[in-house]
Amino acid sequence: MNPFFFGTAARPLYGVYHPPKGRGGGDIGVVLCYPIHVEYMRAHRAFRQLTSLLTRRGLHVLRFDYHGTGDSGGDESEGTLEGWTADVGSAIDELKETAGLSTVSLIGLRLGAALAARAVAGRSDVDRLILWDPVVSGEAYLTELLRRPPTGGFEGDVMGIRGYPVSRELFEGLRKLELGTEPVPADLPVDLVVPGEHPAFSGLRDAWSSPGRPVSFEVVPSDANWGEGDEFGAALIPQGIVQALVDRVARAGVS
């Protein structure tokens, strides 16, 4: 593995490039898109494990932190959907250049799935979009975040939500987010891998399906709740879904 910083001087992003450890992956590269804030903390270990399994199948992997999150530069309150979407684009470019690839796949979890979906607009160098338990409605996501514990509302331009400062710009961006309306390229294969049946997931599948592009839909039952608070910072690793994601990407490489 190779930890490094990329991006610009004003927006340095922390990333870890993992070269393939096994054979059979062809020239497949995968950019992993984390969720944010408390969900990022709970998912970090699962992403390490997902990375390990993908590289053993012979794939190139890049994990990275968005601006104002994890080890990347910037303050948490500077996070915006537009900025983070651009960060996914930077990560795509970085992995292509580092691994010498012409295209890459994206796997995004929760809000990371939404950012990945937004990032593919207008690009022709993404060959697969895999959405893992995606945030489909920003409004519903906010409702869930704000339910517990109660927040004190905005103080100035920032509201503390479960330990992290959220700006008005990010709050409004989330409130308006409807994943089904994002302009995903019509010929891009899309996989939805979700922990259970939910109208939001099937609605997204229907919104994005077209005669030329069926959206693959797989339910891997799981009780995993990424947003659940844990005072002692427990990690969450839903083994079944992690394995399903690996199989899905690796299978695409063989076909």
Partner: peptide, 10 residues
């Protein structure tokens, strides 16, 4: 538990 970490030793 589903949260069991079988990936590597913590």
């Amino acid at each position: 538990p589903e949260t069991a970490d079988t990936g590597w030793a913590a």
